[in-house]
């Protein structure tokens, strides 16, 4: 294999992995105050991409206007999901993971409505303003400016998210809720607000991921499930709740997938990733970089 080919695959893999990581980080955001793993999270990425096509390509809106519109719309959907599918389950203290069913139901509704609305054709979404999808070279490395922008955005977003959790009161309050819901209430923190905010933020973040990912992978309604699985793999390998770990794991997954495409066809690549996931979870249940936390009973 030529060095150029290898580097091109790596660039592709890193960018792809960054998108997987974004799906995973969206899951983390919604998970933090609720301990709910939102199975509809992948569909928010899909909706971001499809609505991105609708607003930016079909309706030719200015990029920033259309993007804000998409992010707000999907964020609102996140709140709706929290209200109808998650809040009722959080109210009752139980070990039955009722939310697994209800968030799955929510995602099925989204997929099938989206299928009716957009049909199955892949759609084109324009690249970020000021960037292009044209290949350019720096030495042996082939890339495009959109890819660079995606990477910068992902890294910056993780910095921003970590800043919010560590430095702002709302971020600390979310940590407090995840640790002790009643304790948080006794300090005047309303867990329901934070749950709603987190679901809205997680959905909006994923919608944004969809918009910036769509130029790289074409938007279609089948995107959601695949990204949910990749996002899950990223957090399972990177450690649930660890955004930096998720980013790193996402990029590793992207690179493995990209490099293996030389020898493996699609089905085998998926099988390879599933195999890696099973093995890692068996050997290191808390993820590749996770601390060995006590297992939950």
């Amino acid at each position: 294999m030529l060095l150029e080919d290898f580097l091109a695959l790596m660039v592709n893999g890193v960018t792809l992995g960054a998108v997987y990581a974004m799906a995973g980080i969206g899951l983390n955001i919604a998970y933090k105050p609720t301990n709910v793993f939102n199975l509809a999270q992948g569909e928010f990425v899909m909706l971001g991409a499809m609505l991105g096509w609708l607003f930016l390509t079909d309706m030719s809106m200015a990029w920033i206007v259309g993007t804000i519109g998409v992010v707000l719309a999907v964020g609102a959907l996140g709140v709706l999901e929290e209200r109808v599918a998650v809040a009722p389950h959080l109210k009752v203290q139980s070990h039955h993971h009722g939310w697994l069913i209800s968030t799955l139901a929510f995602s099925i509704i989204i997929i099938n409505i989206a299928d009716q609305v957009f049909r199955a054709d892949p759609r084109f979404v324009p690249s970020l303003p000021g960037t292009s999808l044209d290949t350019m070279f720096v030495g042996p490395v082939a890339f495009n400016t959109h890819q660079v922008a995606v990477l910068v955005i992902v890294v910056a977003s993780v910095f921003a998210i970590e800043y919010v959790y560590r430095r702002t009161r709302i971020g600390k309050a979310i940590s407090a809720v995840s640790e002790d819901r009643d304790g948080a209430r006794l300090n005047g923190i309303n867990p329901l607000h934070l749950t709603m905010i987190s679901f809205a933020a997680g959905a909006a973040y994923c919608a944004f991921a969809g918009i910036i990912a769509a130029p790289l992978m074409l938007a279609s309604t089948s995107l959601g499930l695949a990204l949910l699985v990749k996002g899950f793999m990223a957090i399972a390998l990177g450690g649930v709740g660890s955004n930096w770990g998720t980013l790193l794991a996402g990029i590793i997954i992207g690179c493995v997938e990209s490099l293996s495409s030389i020898t493996l066809s699609t089905g085998y690549r998926q099988l390879l990733l599933l195999g890696i996931l099973l093995v890692v979870l068996l050997i290191r249940p808390n993820g590749l970089f996770g601390k060995a936390a006590g297992r939950s009973v």
């Binding site: 793993f37 089905g267 998926q270 990733l273 599933l274 297992r295 939950s296």
Partner: peptide, 20 residues
């Protein structure tokens, strides 16, 4: 692990089978 891991593993499996 918590059983929600299983849900996602099974989703991944469900996508892999027809492809294989």
């Amino acid at each position: 692990l918590s059983s929600w891991y299983f849900v996602l593993i099974t989703i991944a499996f469900t996508l892999v089978v027809p492809a294989m």
